[in-house]
């Protein structure tokens, strides 16, 4: 994308995001909970570059791969890591209680915060990121949820800046996060 197109695109996004932020900061935040059982508010993300992974702990293919890639990328980062907020957002609150997520996150980079909560609120939130999960009809431990694309980087305003394609190596992800934190600190100066 050229710089012109990019700024035009960012302009449009800023407007959309204003609307969206407004909607989910009011309705949603009461009903979200992090993996330590604390109430979670989207406000906590403000001012940070967010590495957002949408998935569920029973997922066998995309999610662990994406979490592993993100963990390697995060471990490659230095002090700029404090400007990054890695989030694992579940699409499966029925099975993914805070305890289950906490256990799952032990496999990955310690900076991850896992988020679960009320299913309607979560659905609203993931839909906002363009993710439309589809649940297998039968219920049980091996129920699959097809949730589509999963790794995003959000800027400090909470807007999706980049959708990171599966297959791009972890070094690319850490490079992207680094550049974004760099850009943000420039803005602050």
């Amino acid at each position: 994308m050229t710089t012109n197109r990019r700024s035009e695109f960012l302009g449009k996004l800023a407007f959309i995001c204003f609307l969206v932020m407004f909607s989910f900061t009011t309705a949603a935040e009461e009903k979200l909970v992090d993996h330590q059982g604390e109430q979670f508010s989207v406000d906590q993300l403000k001012g940070k570059v967010v590495l957002l992974i949408i998935g569920f702990t029973n997922c066998e293919d995309i999610c662990p791969t994406e979490m592993a890639r993100a963990s390697i990328a995060l471990s490659e980062m230095k002090e700029e890591l404090r400007l990054v907020k890695p989030i694992f957002l579940t699409v499966d609150p029925e099975r993914d209680s805070p305890e289950v997520i906490a256990k799952y996150l032990k496999n990955f980079h310690p900076s991850f915060t896992g988020i679960s909560g009320d299913s309607e609120t979560l659905a609203e939130l993931v839909n906002h990121y363009g993710v439309l999960p589809k649940r297998e009809k039968h219920h049980g431990d091996n129920q699959r949820i097809d949730h589509g694309f999963s790794t995003f980087i959000l800027n400090t305003l909470g807007e999706i800046e980049v959708a990171v394609l599966p297959g791009l190596p972890p070094s690319h992800l850490s490079e992207l996060l680094f550049k974004m934190t760099e850009e943000n600190s420039k803005i602050r100066i």
Binding site: M1, G130, E161, V162, H172, K179, E183
Partner: peptide
């Protein structure tokens, strides 16, 4: 259905600030 122009813009954005 999923990959609208808005969405693929986000894929392209992988290379806006690096490479």
């Amino acid at each position: 259905a999923r990959d609208t122009p808005n969405v693929i813009q986000k894929y392209a954005a992988n290379f806006d600030i690096t490479n």
